[in-house]
Nucleic acid binder design. Structure first.
Lengths: 210, 210, 210, 210
DNA sequence: AATGAATGAGGCTTCATTCAT
DNA sequence: AATGAATGAAGCCTCATTCAT
């Protein structure tokens, strides 16, 4: 009785996130418009109507999916940066590692691909995502870069743009995984990819030794 | 009033490529599923039914859009590589410049974003695109990297993965432009972006100076 | 005003057979292609979409209409023939009467006209109908004819073809009723028609008395 | 030159009936609504637009098809009946033979099936067909029957209904040929069928021999 | 006279959403 | 809270009809 009740309760509380998890997986795979609510319901093991107990509409479900996928990652990065007292390149490395283990290896990994695909259909969600994730993520990288430039560890480059160049390969790794890779059976091995990216950055950012 | 377009001077000129151009623009903006054929027709200045004189179905139109957007770019890159006799880093630079002027600044710029968003809904098209564009593009970069490593200009890195890291920022530039940027009014300035990418690569790939 | 049907007492009762009944009536009247699904839905008192809860497509609905209209009639005829121990002409008479009361006077009366009009658009359904209805019906008549010939009651005629000639007027009666008659207001009176048909057969089949 | 011109001229004059012939074949096969004008045009070797040079609309084409298929057959029957001076059963036989050779073995054989399938969608055409074909055909048969009854050759039966019973198998022969037969590969051999029909009639109508 | 490109109304079908149970 | 039958707006697609050539 008790053992039976416990899971049931847990399930009830966990219901919304079970639904958003199912929705995320399908939105990432097929895109928002091409995903039917019934598919989501089936994948979550509920009926179509149940979705409407938790979300007002398909749009609202999309927004919830994005919001849910945001929560703690950037904050952790900010904490890491605040605590960090090693070199700038070590900081970049740790941020990247944290980001990878907290996003790249979790169920949220599909969000960047989804956000990119749907941004223009949900511009307000895109702005929300930008304000709450991208801007803060960029700020983290930007601070690390500036710290390195200030200390003489990095050479001087225009920071804002450098941020984009640094972030881009990380995003492409995820995008590739959720778009072309499943069609080709041609995964990119993330560890090696990130190592080479970091290696190029390490030397590429280094202040020229004359 | 003045520029009232000639009422009926279409027929032979209302070529499939006008239709695919309109389709590409809308597919990129809204995604395949969310784009209505009527919108495409209106944008192309024809009626709904006319689309079916040239394409069997919405799916067929999508495939035509991708195929049309492929043709000559990679071939030019291959010609450039074949003719090149400078340093490897110069070759990378020229390939990147060519790619930018032949894709990044044309109407085809949206294709990577579109392909990424829809790959899993059109796996055969994704494979086609991979075989005819991505694979050949990667081969170009790979050859340049290997040339540089062979000549001692570049340090030795695992080539296949390095290719991905080199290409990623270029793709992200386009993806960003057709996804988040229009929602944020926050364009990335391509010249500066590509310059910094190239600068990081130049020094990042350089054989370690002792 | 008085008999306003209960607003919502459908659900489980809005059974497929209500839908096929509505479809049959309209298919018989207008033909398959010229009948709109919406008309069927309206006649059945449901909405367009509801049809798709029970049938995959308009074609599937057609098939269901035919299948539904087949069930028990021939089996009854077979039982009658098995039990019969009078003369062959009496057997013919009883088969014809049963057929008339079980088909000619029911909602299924339109099926022969429908099947004839649409056979070539649904050849597999036509074959199904042939195997499950026509072939068995012919066998019944054939057995009665052969019994009569064996007993000396009937003269000898080529049986297979005679079957067709015997059946034809019965089918034409229904076909006429659902095709020309409604346009002319000129019904054929079935009892008299069947009586004369039977009368001609009785004497026409009789073994010549010299 | 001359040889080339001749056929061309002939073709021009024959054009409308080439079109109705193509239309008849397809209307019979698929039904009116399911037949596309383009199919008709292709079968007739012209373009879609050309149909509209000769017929105002698809409906008008249908009407022309029926009208064209009517012309001379009944008149011939009437002439035969007028000239006939043998027995009533011989007259029936000759009418039937004429009907068969003038309809059953020609391109017009499909009209009864077509008229039956479409009557309710074209009630005015149905009435036209009734007045100009069916009524006169029935009158022919009716006159023969009455002649036979008057002379004592035939027994007395209610004439109007007997007409129907006499005609029905002939119509069913054609209907079967253009509906079920092509789906089953199971043709009815017409000569034998008509012979048995006539044989049953001969004896069935005969005045009872005591 | 003939063509065939173009049109757009209309039909089949899908699916987000509602609602009685 | 949960279901799933029902709805109907909306999208893809067809095809009769038009019209410039």
């Amino acid at each position: 009785m008790f053992a039976a009740t416990q899971p049931r309760r847990r399930r009830k509380e966990a219901r919304p996130s079970e639904l958003t998890a199912a929705a995320l997986a399908l939105f990432v795979e097929k895109g928002f418009a091409a995903t039917r609510l019934e598919e989501i319901a089936i994948r979550a093991g509920v009926s179509k109507g149940t979705l409407y107990l938790y979300f007002d509409s398909k749009d609202a479900l999309f927004k919830a999916v994005i919001q849910e996928g945001i929560v703690p990652v950037v904050a952790e990065g900010e904490a890491i940066a605040a605590r960090h007292d090693g070199s700038a390149v070590e900081l970049l490395e740790r941020l990247l590692e944290n980001w990878w283990s907290r996003i790249g290896e979790t169920e949220y990994a599909g969000i960047p691909k989804l956000m990119i695909a749907e941004a223009r259909n949900f511009p307000d969600v895109a702005r929300f995502y930008y304000e709450n994730v991208i801007r803060r993520g960029r700020a983290l990288i930007g601070a690390a870069l500036e710290r390195g430039m200030a200390s003489g560890e990095f050479r001087r480059l225009e920071v804002e743009t450098t941020i984009e160049v640094v972030i881009a390969p990380i995003l492409m790794l995820l995008i590739w995984r959720f778009s072309m890779a499943p069609c080709l059976g041609r995964e990119i091995e993330p560890r090696q990819y990130l190592a080479i990216h970091m290696e190029l950055l390490r030397q590429g950012l280094e202040r020229s030794r004359v």
